[in-house]
């Protein structure tokens, strides 16, 4: 594709003038126009965006549609296996996906910190385009603001997304029923460890790559296979543990999972042992929990495994204590898996 080729070259802004983002890049004048044309339109290039209006005029298919929005703040901006741009696209794409919608269009708003290297912005924007292509969505409108130096971590991104639902499966916590089977779409905790690993002093020699990826193709495959997904939710901050707790509360049922069935890579596991972290608390950016009726679980697992070999059936929904998540430990004990409290901190004791 022409676009792909164009994206491989260096940042198109004339670097001698614009090595760093200046306040004027958000000032509404010529510099801002140049930034929009040379960076954002160049990278996201599509007919709607090229229209250059204040908003995107969309040809929208019939049926139910889904609208979602999310803001992305991450330090560092680049981490093994991804960056804030990939995160901003995949995060919103996955929010649409978890509602059962096929993602179609995204908006992208940037809050840039004065002094940000333009080259970094270009790398992020390129990464957004690649992620959007991989997820099959177009970035159709956006906005840019520049804040004074010291008032942002380089950049923040907000993306909103619209998608359509073209199937009859109703997906949501209220459909979860006792007897349902809980599955997870792949090994957990990579994203959180990738980001934590980049922070000072916590780096491992072998970098753990983020699991940041779009989930629509996996969910589409499940829906196409006729699996009656009762509920799905992607595991982001708070990890698998938070999702299980949210859904147990949302459905007023008890969830019971088996720790031995939770897929964790040996690198994440080793890092968690060293830092004293519970892998179920560690963030993911490309994993989801699917809850399916009994009888559908084998087919669901088959479809999930065809997309990610480490997908696993991890537990069941019980008609027990509402909102409680219990976990069977490797030695056959049982404990409560409670919501993670606050910031994830490595411990030595």
């Amino acid at each position: 594709m022409n676009e792909t080729k164009a994206l491989e070259i260096a940042c198109p802004l004339p670097l001698n003038d614009h090595r760093h983002i200046k306040l004027a890049h958000g000032g509404g004048g010529r510099m801002m126009q140049q930034l929009i044309e040379d960076v954002f339109v160049a990278a996201f290039d599509n007919p709607v965006l090229r229209g250059g209006h204040d908003g995107a005029v969309l040809e929208f298919p019939h049926g139910r549609s889904v609208l979602t929005t999310d803001s992305y703040v991450v330090r560092p901006l680049f981490f093994p296996g991804g960056d804030i741009g990939a995160l901003a696209v995949n995060g919103t794409v996955n929010d649409l996906t978890m509602c059962g919608a096929e993602p179609l269009f995204l908006t992208a708003s940037f809050i840039l910190e004065e002094g940000l290297e333009t080259e970094k912005l270009w790398r992020v924007v390129k990464s957004m385009r690649s992620a959007a292509d991989a997820a099959g969505v177009s970035i159709v409108t956006g906005d840019t603001k520049v804040v004074e130096r010291g008032h942002g971590d380089g950049m923040y991104i907000n993306t909103s997304g619209v998608g359509r639902i073209n199937h009859d499966t109703r997906v949501g916590p209220k459909r979860i029923a006792a007897g349902d089977v809980i599955l997870v779409s792949g090994d957990i905790g990579r994203h959180g460890m990738a980001v934590m690993g980049e922070r000072e002093g916590l780096a491992f020699t072998t970098p753990i790559e983020s699991d940041c990826m779009p989930l629509w193709s996996t969910v589409h495959a499940m829906l196409s296979a006729g699996i009656d997904i009762h509920c799905m939710r992607d595991a982001t901050r708070g990890g698998l543990c938070a999702v299980l707790n949210e859904l147990a509360r949302g459905s007023s049922l008890q969830f019971d999972v088996d720790e031995r069935d939770i897929p964790i890579s040996e690198s994440v596991r080793g890092a968690c042992e060293v830092l004293g972290l519970d892998a179920t608390h560690v963030a993911c950016e490309g994993r989801f929990v699917a809850i399916v009726p009994r009888g559908d679980e084998e087919r669901a697992l088959y479809v999930l495994k065809s997309q990610n070999e480490s997908a696993s059936m991890i537990g069941r929904v019980l008609d027990g204590e509402p909102g409680l998540v219990t976990i069977r430990t490797p030695i056959g004990g049982r404990r409560i898996l409670d919501m993670p409290a606050g910031e994830l901190l490595p411990r030595i004791c």
Partner: peptide, 15 residues
């Protein structure tokens, strides 16, 4: 405390 942690994390008391 590390042992306390393991006792609760693995549900040892249950056994």
């Amino acid at each position: 405390g590390g042992q306390t942690h393991a006792i609760v994390r693995f549900g040892i008391q249950d056994l």
